[in-house]
């Protein structure tokens, strides 16, 4: 299982490139401006969002219920569960 991090909004190719490369058992974490991909990944059980960056963009109230919200400790834990971490930017 690979953890993919995305730090770019949906106007950038990072999300589509990542989705094309992701395996079904991989996981994704939206960080920084990747938070703006929130609605694009709604319904994808592999997607997680970083709570601090979500709050910094004023979008805490718009979190789709099926997405998992993590703090930095959760980000670290997800890294330990994954075999490797791939950064898309």
């Amino acid at each position: 299982m690979i953890l993919h991090t995305i730090n770019k909004p949906p106007s950038h190719t990072a999300l589509s490139d990542c989705l094309a490369a992701m395996a079904s058992d991989d996981v994704m974490l939206l960080i920084e401006d990747g938070i703006y991909c929130l609605h694009e990944v709604a319904g994808d059980h592999r997607a997680h969002v970083l709570r601090e960056d979500l709050a910094a963009r004023g979008l805490s109230g718009q979190l789709p219920s099926e997405l998992k919200c993590l703090d930095y400790a959760g980000f670290v834990a997800l890294c330990t569960q994954a075999e490797k971490v791939k950064t898309w930017a």
């Binding site: 730090n7 960080i31 920084e32 401006d33 601090e52 930095y72 400790a73 980000f75 670290v76 890294c79």
Partner: peptide, 15 residues
């Protein structure tokens, strides 16, 4: 310039 340094610092603290 970007959030990269700040995110990395937060991640370092957390781990």
């Amino acid at each position: 310039t970007s959030q990269s340094s700040h995110s990395a610092l937060n991640f370092a603290h957390a781990l």
